[in-house]
Every structure is written in structure tokens, then in C-alpha cells.
């Protein structure tokens, strides 16, 4: 494969727009829910929508991680934390807006939105990833011959930098064991 890949500039489709609305609504509900358990439940819905969005953008590995970590592990860990502490029942459904915190979040949003102008469009030929076409094309052309993996991103993660990923897996494994040990001690103390 020697020819360059022609980039496709994406437009916002109906499914993207509806997913954006869903994600923003769930994020706002998580932030403003007065009851902690309700916030945990709605946060699970948020991560499901986020993962669907990642899947639509052809990043199934990110979607899988988002679903497993955010919807699965985080929900269970937050519930365990709630079970070990106390949950106060509230009459009001929504938290009153904390204006200094909302102002800080707004400033952060504005700061991030300013940088969005400089982000290249999806598939843009001016994107930094194309600044060294020889390297990019080598990976796209040779990945299957070298590693036997069809997906280039997967090949980089699991083959070209396999030891790095192995180290990450060891860290996650250790964290899981540590969490289990801590819980076991509190349960049987």
C-alpha cells in the first residue's frame, strides 16, 4: 500500500447530535443530583452513552475500556465506598448550585474551548499525525506483515509496545488485589 489515505472530513450526524444531548444531560444530572446513590446510577448511564459515542467514532478499544472501567468497576467501587460510609437521605432531588465552583468549572470549560479552535478537523491532512508521513505509512503498510494483527492501533498497543502494555496490566492487577485485600479486612475485622 503506497498511496496516501484520503481523509474524510466528518459532519455532525443525527446520531452524534442525539448522543451529545444524552451525554450532556447525564453529566449535568450527575453533577446536580442531591442523592449520592442517584448520582452513581446516572453516572453509569453517562458512561454508557460516552462509550456508544466512542464506538461510533470507530474507537472500539476505547469504548470497551470506558464500559469496563467507568460503567463496571467505578460503579462497584463507588457503591462499596457508600456501603462503608453513611448515606444521608435528602428531601430535595437536586443540589443547589455552588456558584464559585460553577464559575471555576466554567473558566476551565472556556480555557479548553479556546484550545479546540487549534485542534485539526477529523481526518484533516494538516493533522500532526501526518507531519511525518514516512513513519505513519510504514506502520499502516507493514503492521500486518510484521505482527499479523489487522488493526494498527491494536498492533501498536499489544505488539510494538507490548512490554509497556504488560506493565500497565501488572499495575491494574496489583491495584485490584490491593482493593480486594482492603475490603476483605474491613468486612472481617
Amino acid at each position: 500500500m503506497t498511496g496516501t489515505i484520503t481523509p474524510v472530513v466528518a459532519e455532525v450526524t443525527a446520531i452524534e447530535a442525539s448522543l451529545f444531548v444524552f451525554v450532556v444531560l447525564t453529566a449535568l444530572a450527575t453533577a446536580f443530583a442531591r442523592d449520592v446513590l442517584a448520582a452513581v446510577i446516572v453516572f453509569g448511564a453517562y458512561s454508557l452513552g460516552m462509550a456508544a459515542l466512542y464506538t461510533f467514532y470507530r474507537a472500539p478499544d476505547v469504548a470497551m475500556t470506558e464500559a469496563a472501567i467507568s460503567a463496571g468497576v467505578t460503579t462497584v467501587l463507588l457503591l462499596l465506598t457508600l456501603a462503608k460510609t453513611t448515606r444521608i437521605d435528602h428531601e430535595a432531588a437536586f443540589e443547589a448550585v455552588n456558584y464559585p465552583a460553577a464559575g471555576a468549572a466554567g473558566l476551565l470549560f472556556v480555557g479548553l474551548a479556546i484550545t479546540m479552535v487549534d485542534v485539526p478537523a477529523v481526518g484533516s491532512p494538516d493533522a500532526p499525525v501526518w507531519s511525518n508521513p514516512d513513519v505513519t505509512q510504514w506502520y499502516l503498510a507493514e503492521t500486518y506483515a510484521v505482527t499479523g494483527v489487522e488493526n494498527t492501533v491494536m498492533a501498536v498497543l499489544a505488539a510494538f509496545r507490548g512490554f509497556d502494555t504488560f506493565g500497565e496490566a501488572v499495575v491494574v492487577f496489583a491495584a485490584g488485589i490491593a482493593a480486594l485485600i482492603v475490603l476483605r479486612r474491613e468486612v472481617f475485622a
Binding site: 446520531i15 442525539s18 444531548v21 444531560l25 443530583a33 442517584a38 448511564a45
Partner: peptide, 26 residues
């Protein structure tokens, strides 16, 4: 378009997840 319609249905279902009133509803 059908998938987008399902997302709209999900947004409708979100009302029940946020409003409650009981945890079982959520």
C-alpha cells in the same frame, strides 16, 4: 436514523433515571 431514534428514546428514559422517585425506578 433508527439508531438516532433509539438515542432519543434513551433521553426520554433518562427522565425516569433522574426523577426517581425511588431507587428501584432508577
Amino acid at each position: 436514523v433508527v439508531a438516532a431514534g433509539f438515542v432519543v428514546l434513551a433521553i426520554g428514559m433518562l427522565y425516569r433515571a433522574v426523577k426517581g422517585p425511588t431507587m428501584q425506578d432508577r
